[in-house]
Design a binder for these strands. Structure first.
Length: 566
RNA sequence: CGGGCUGUAGCGCAGCUUGGUAGCGCGCCUCGUUCGGGACGAGGAGGUCCCGGGUUCAAAUCCCGGCAGCCCGACCA
């Protein structure tokens, strides 16, 4: 590509309102432009990188035996009524955009479980056709509340989404493992470090799932990581253990109730009992929730910790809480729940150190002082119900957990029968002649997001530094002063043609302009190898090369061979 | 969805307090000199000052109402 003809304008100054270095460089170097909040145009250079990422994704998924297809971005809302997900549109869980057309309401697909289930369900009739995994690379639409970090969080995004269909849970598991392995190959190929972490599934549904987290300063999440044993989990899913502390409780004062009018929040409690010198770490924070079966459960954790709801549980809303005769907002506690049919889930830590605790009194404007678990109350359930913090003990090996800031670059799910039982036609005839629902998995990787993450991971103060595998060009050929030296011009043109013939993709800076401008642009654009052809080199019949990543340099003869440049 | 800030040339910004001819730097066009790390000189093009209403002889500037963008938080497949 001759640079004189490329639609490219580099900017000397950082654009306003860029919130990350990688994104600012993508704009300065002319790869992308923002059209509106969270909506981007890929200029020719940016599209080249996007296409290279897509090619790697295709290569690895094809190798894993998946088949590419293309579904429409637009789908009728009736399909989403079938799965029940249309009820959640417009909420933060599923910010789908819809379009009213003449044929009714359409959904601009935020993800494609419904469409693919309907499509593959229609094609698959027999177990003989299974397993099958399909994928597509396509634009997705999400009405993001707050787009951020350039291509990392957008309203329109290029995504690769794959879906597996199997006869049984074992098949699903095998397909899942294949997909995870393929995704890891993709990350290795684009030179990003991704860690699969156990996560919760949110609006997609299903049980087992992993997020592929790339550590980055522009990460929007943290995951818990144990360097000792390799345990990884999203903070929404991470567990931890607590070692039991022995305590002599026989002389602890009996439980007593204290009137605490107007004391609602933990801050209120701390203030109210300040005179008694009871620390927050000796208090219990208790909240009411509904579990996956819709039953009411009180979750109790140490006062200074944040409650983590298990997957499928929801916080009880204020209305339901006020209406319930056994619960009193601000005074939810441990003792006396059973008589109201409420079960008690207690965090590990409260068991490790059974008391005495200060907690709500389960009566209006009342708190309990000196509660001892095991003496005053028995929990129905014990588990890790707090959001992990750095330093908590790894659930596997008790090593100290770290929290790593990172971007979610891909997400894989074992969906099971979640969609195939709700949607019509998603079944097959098994060997024994019975009709069975399809066991599904789904696997999403953010292709345009990867571009943003790559720019953030691979740059320096001068500009972008693309890994070879995704760079827009292999070589960036710069001629110096060719406009006033016809021999140089000819030599540059020849070299450009020759390199292109030998299979290199070459960006040829044939523009007029001072060396400083050309060098600065070359650094900014980040092509892996820069070639400089000047008058001095021409005399000696050589062209200089310099590697962008480490400034390694050398010369090759103008007549070749050029293998050194590969 | 709450709180804060911003909207002026392609890009980055000043001007607004105290109303009166719309500016600077970069970029862009022409000519000349220069040119192996963002050159210099001369000349030039380019604006619904976010939108609508109000006050005023007069509004980029003051007032009211919108819209958009950014930041913090909430949320996040």
């Amino acid at each position: 590509m001759r640079m004189s003809q490329l639609l490219l304008r580099t900017l000397r100054e950082n654009p306003a309102d860029t919130d990350s270095e990688g994104y600012a460089l993508l704009v300065r170097a002319g790869y992308v432009r923002r059209l509106s909040s969270g909506v981007y145009t890929f200029l020719p250079l940016g599209l080249k990188v996007l296409h290279r990422i897509e090619a790697i994704v295709r290569r690895e998924l094809d190798r894993a035996g998946m088949q590419e297809m293309l579904m429409p971005a637009l789908s009728p809302i009736e399909l989403w009524d079938q799965s029940g997900r249309s009820a959640r549109f417009g909420t933060d869980a599923l910010p789908a955009l819809t379009v009213d057309g003449r044929g009714g309401t359409y959904v601009l697909g935020p993800t494609h479980e419904e469409v693919v289930t309907a499509t593959v369900g229609q094609e698959v009739e027999s177990y003989r056709q299974l397993p099958v995994t399909v994928y597509q690379i396509q634009s997705k639409f999400r009405d993001e509340a707050r787009p951020r970090y350039g291509l990392v969080r957008t309203k329109e995004l290029v995504m690769c989404d794959a879906y597996s269909f199997d006869r049984n849970p074992e098949g699903m598991q095998a397909s899942y493992e294949k997909a995870v392995a393929a995704y890891l190959e993709i990350f290795a190929a684009v030179e990003l470090e991704a860690t699969p972490v156990v996560a919760q599934s949110g609006a997609i549904g299903g049980e087992v799932n992993h997020e592929f987290m790339v550590p980055s300063v522009i990460g929007e999440d943290h995951f818990a990581s144990c360097s000792a044993c390799g345990y990884h989990a999203n903070t929404e899913a991470a567990e931890r253990q607590c070692s039991a502390q022995t305590a002599e409780l026989s002389d602890v004062a009996p439980r007593r109730q204290v009137a605490t009018p107007g004391v609602v929040t933990m801050d209120d409690v701390v203030a109210h009992f300040a005179a008694d010198e009871i620390a927050l770490t000796n208090m219990v924070k208790a909240i009411a929730a509904t579990n996956a079966d819709g039953e009411i459960v009180v979750i109790a954790v140490r006062g200074d910790r944040e409650v983590r709801l298990p997957h499928g549980w929801d916080l009880l809303d204020d209305e339901a809480l006020t209406a319930h005769r056994g619960l009193h907002k601000g005074s939810i506690g441990l003792v006396g729940l059973a008589s109201h049919g409420i079960s008690l889930a207690v965090d590990l830590e409260l068991m490790a150190r059974p008391g005495p605790w200060l907690c709500g009194g389960n009566a209006a404007d009342t708190h309990d002082v000196s509660v001892v678990i095991g003496r005053d109350v028995e929990p129905d359930l014990v588990g890790s119900f707090v959001v992990v913090e750095a330093g908590d003990a790894c659930p596997n090996c008790a090593g100290a957990l770290e929290l790593v800031r990172s971007v979610e670059a891909a997400h894989t799910f074992q969906l099971g029968l979640q969609y195939s039982t709700k949607m019509t036609g998603a079944s097959f005839l098994d060997e024994d002649g019975t009709e069975q629902p399809l066991w599904m998995g789904c696997y999403g990787i953010g292709v345009s997001r990867l571009l943003g993450v790559l720019a953030e991971a691979h740059h320096d103060d001068k500009g972008l530094v693309w890994p070879k595998s995704v760079a827009p060009f292999d070589l960036h050929l710069v001629t110096l002063g060719a406009n006033r030296n016809p021999d140089l011009q000819t030599a540059g043109d020849l070299l450009y043609e020759q390199l292109t013939r030998e299979g290199f993709s070459v960006l040829y800076d044939d523009r007029e302009g001072s060396p400083g401008v050309k060098f600065a642009d070359a650094d900014l654009l980040g092509v892996p190898i820069r070639l400089v052809l000047g008058a001095k080199g021409l005399e000696r019949g050589v062209v200089e090369w310099r590697r962008r990543s480490d400034d390694g340099e050398g010369e090759v003869s103008l007549s070749g061979p050029f293998s050194e440049l590969r």
